[in-house]
Write a protein that binds this DNA or RNA. Structure first.
Ligand SMILES: [Mn+2]
Ligand SMILES: [Mn+2]
Ligand SMILES: [Mn+2]
Ligand SMILES: [Mn+2]
Lengths: 225, 225
DNA sequence: GTCATGATTTAGCTATGCCTAAATTAGCAC
DNA sequence: GTGCTAATTTAGGCATAGCTAAATCATGAC
């Protein structure tokens, strides 16, 4: 920064990256509006500016959604790297619990210098993921693709490992921690679904019933063994 | 924040506190303009807003300068506490040199939460001063008054201790470090002034000639020995 | 006391980013 | 093809915080 980007611009770029998904599909104004908590008209205004900017951060087609340009994607990944490094740092060095880190990182990610980013990464020994299991992009933006699936879409009786959990809701995070739903933990979905919940064996414990809102925040992948 | 104050507002309040001096004299628009690097007209506009605000941050009298209100002083001291805690943290935990800390802290001071402030203070063991020797206000804003004098105004042959150094110019800071001009160091001004420099014995070394710009950034007080 | 001068304020603009209300458009039903 | 409706954009405002140029004010010299 030295206002190369602003907090608002950063947050739009991150949102476009996240909502575009791995296929980097075009993102609608409405989707951005509801994700960012602003009105659709505000989104249109911002997208026009982001497209006009030199260098352009997005490719924007009126009525057909928006995609990141290379420059936009680069900045989005840089901000995400800041965010996840900060979360890990706050958690590991400053006694933040995993439900407290997100809010603080969401603000600071826009304001730390490259120097501070580097020092934090060095202090942490270049960690690969944040406390919720999300991968930390490399300095050059490289980020290993993952085959994650929501736990609620994982087949019964097939062992899986938790790869990450949603970090948006502190209440959910505290509940997950209490139940042992941590990245790296092995889980098996047991037969016994009902509307509104699934039955899951967590680690080596007894099967536990998880509400769908909670379970949908848990992403898993196959256990390689 | 959650914009209770903005970065600009914070920086105006800090500037009024600093320029007002220990006697908290009224500060002129011009002084603020040159300190903050903005035009005098911009200062007038901001002072009007700060005075109108509820609760008011300043007492502003057209053409006669501005003073902080209690609320303004409280916020100014809080931001200064953030700044100095951050400087000490960056220096002690993240390998920043003492000429690098100021710039980073100047930005982050506006964006850390009360929680992060507290965790940093705890991690550091509630330090009393930043790397340049400036006192860190307590959480309630209390800050011990000091009897500092610029080294260039200290009498010859009377031993003094460096209490703090100006942290604005990284080049000067590196030079000071090289010469051993650190907070806590004992100094004696030797007879031998010329226009443009003074002769100073630093610690137990040989007398060294210091340029006035450099020496004017060094504040000392009597040694209570 | 009057005036000149420098300090300060006012007036009028710009840019960012948000909002509401009023068009407009895309895309589907028929 | 014609409409309908929901999505989206446009138009017009507001707040923050800066700027320049043009007043205006305070003060010291006389
Ligand atoms: Mn953010
Ligand atoms: Mn996270
Ligand atoms: Mn600042
Ligand atoms: Mn300092």
């Amino acid at each position: 920064m030295t206002p190369q980007t602003t907090e608002a611009v950063d947050d739009y770029l991150k949102a476009i990256l996240e909502l575009g998904g791995p296929a980097e599909e075009a993102v609608s104004s409405n989707a951005l509006a509801s994700h960012l908590g602003v009105r659709a008209a505000s989104v249109t205004g911002m997208l026009q500016k982001l497209a006009l900017r030199e260098p352009s951060f997005v490719v924007y087609q009126k009525h057909y959604g928006v995609r990141l340009s290379d420059a936009g994607k680069r900045r989005a990944l840089e901000v995400i790297r800041h965010h996840r490094l900060l979360e890990r740092f706050l958690h590991d060095f400053l006694d933040y619990s995993w439900d407290e880190v997100h809010e603080e990182a969401e603000r600071l990610e826009h304001y730390i210098s490259e120097r501070l980013e580097d020092r934090i990464a060095a202090k942490l020994g270049d960690p690969a993921s944040d406390p919720h299991g999300h991968p930390i992009p490399e300095k050059d933006g490289a980020i290993a693709p993952r085959n994650e699936v929501q736990l609620i879409h994982w087949p019964c009786s097939v062992p899986a490992g938790i790869s990450s959990v949603s970090d948006r809701d502190p209440v959910e995070l505290r509940e997950m921690k209490r139940l042992g739903l941590l990245p790296g933990t092995k889980v098996v979905v047991e037969p016994g679904s009902r509307t509104g919940s699934i039955l899951v064996r967590i680690g080596s414990g007894q099967p536990t019933r998880l509400t769908l809102p909670l379970a949908s925040g848990v992403l898993v992948s196959g256990v390689t063994e």
